[in-house]
Design a binder for these strands. Structure first.
Lengths: 239, 239
DNA sequence: ACGGACCTGTAACCTAGGTTAAGCGCAAAA
DNA sequence: TTTTGCGCTTAACCTAGGTTACAGGTCCGT
């Protein structure tokens, strides 16, 4: 099951058999969790990190007034809170958006990796930096793109990320988010998120029904989003 | 001059004399640059990282249409592109907002640090994670806060960050950004950035004149911003 | 000393997206 | 089987912030 994580890594870098063993051994246990659970609360002290093997997670931040912003989505293969290894507490919550399978990686094993497997440490460092790049792209979306272009951009991003771990069909993917959750990702209200989806439908770019996103016109969607996947660092890297 | 960087680190963690030596030795050269220079272009291949010793930098991303979003500001003591060590190219530009002094840290010396000084490597990893936390908070601002609250939030954040490296007065700090640049940080137009500053003035919260920001009512400003500095991880950490 | 570019400031007007409210369908609970 | 609640949808209306335009000040290069 952890192979989805290895797939994500191997998409971008070589992983030796020994490194693979180290990664596999870093997992202390595996947990199953239902949808809409809070896994980590902002500020909580941490001594392990969570590797998502199946399902969808969100990192989100709240305003005192209750408005919520999702700052990153996570899919199978992603670490949800690898940054918690160095930070020891998070500045955001981590919640499940669907039923999930999680691997628990204790921080002392990560520390050992930094002591004994510097290349692997650099790889994991790299992946927290890719997460940051995704958040930067979100800032660009929230600050400068229109609602429709933002939503198209998110759909494109998720397509590339899911495809990289073999979780996309050629014409779309399973997207278990409600319209409210999509709105929280994009800094919109539910009402306007709905209007925006209608508009994407009307333009024959996507269909979204019973948790299935169908991309009818990938070229058109990417054009509308002005989507350039280079910020996902999906090409070969060499850390 | 690199002491401002050590000050930033020591604000949060212990640095041994040997670690200090390693950090000092990691600098290959020091460069002075004028304002409004592009230091790094998105996509460019990198083999060193830039440590900012004096002045202000911005990381920014552009849309094809020319709209620009500043995704993070950097002040003395910050690494501008430490994430470039693992990523080897950036997904954003790095530009000077004022005359700057920069230390150049070759990636092979950073690699050596990951091989020989794992604790220092964890510390630097930590700091790229703090950068990411700042970008997350920006996403929250851009997605959910009003223009005035966003601007108040930025002014508070910069106060805390500058204070942490001894670059703030008790009642404000030097802020060399034009209103256009502030607007680009906050996802606003220049016109509305100006309106927003006028409103902050009218409420007697801040004064901003000839590059000097004076905070007239810190309590009030933080209240308006709903500012909670915990995302800056300014307290003691233990990597 | 002059011209031009950029910065700050304002005014008039406009629109993307927010707000409020309501209806419908469906699934889980009772 | 009814009820309750949630997710989706739409409509009417409103406002925060965008757009365009213009003016005065300052700094810079010639």
């Amino acid at each position: 099951m952890i192979s989805v994580h290895l797939k994500k890594l191997r998409r971008r870098i070589e992983i030796s058999p020994e490194e693979e063993r180290t990664i596999r051994d870093s997992v202390a246990e595996t947990r199953k969790v239902g949808a809409d659970q809070i896994l980590i609360r902002s500020g909580e002290e941490l001594n392990s990190s969570l590797l998502l093997l199946e399902g969808w997670l969100a990192r989100s931040k709240d305003l005192p007034s209750g408005e919520r912003q999702v700052t990153e989505l996570h899919v199978a293969g992603d670490f949800a809170d690898l940054h918690g290894f160095t930070l020891k507490r998070l500045d955001h919550d981590v919640t499940t958006l669907s039923p999930c399978v999680l691997a628990v990686v204790p921080h002392d094993r990560l520390k050992e990796i930094t002591e004994r497997h510097p290349r692997l440490a650099r790889i994991y460092w790299l992946f927290t930096n890719v997460d940051a790049a995704i958040t930067r792209e979100l800032s660009l979306s929230l600050g400068q793109r229109s609602a429709i272009s933002r939503m198209a951009h998110l759909f494109c991003e998720l397509y590339f990320r899911l495809d990289a771990v073999g979780r996309a069909r050629s014409d779309g993917y399973e997207l278990p988010l409600t319209q409210r959750e999509l709105a929280e990702c994009l800094g919109l209200t539910v009402v306007h998120a709905n209007r925006t989806i209608q508009e994407l439908r009307r333009r024959n770019l996507v269909e979204l029904e019973s948790r299935q996103l169908t991309i009818l016109d990938r070229r058109g969607l990417q054009g509308l989003a002005e989507f350039d996947p280079s910020y996902l660092y999906l090409d070969r890297l060499n850390p």
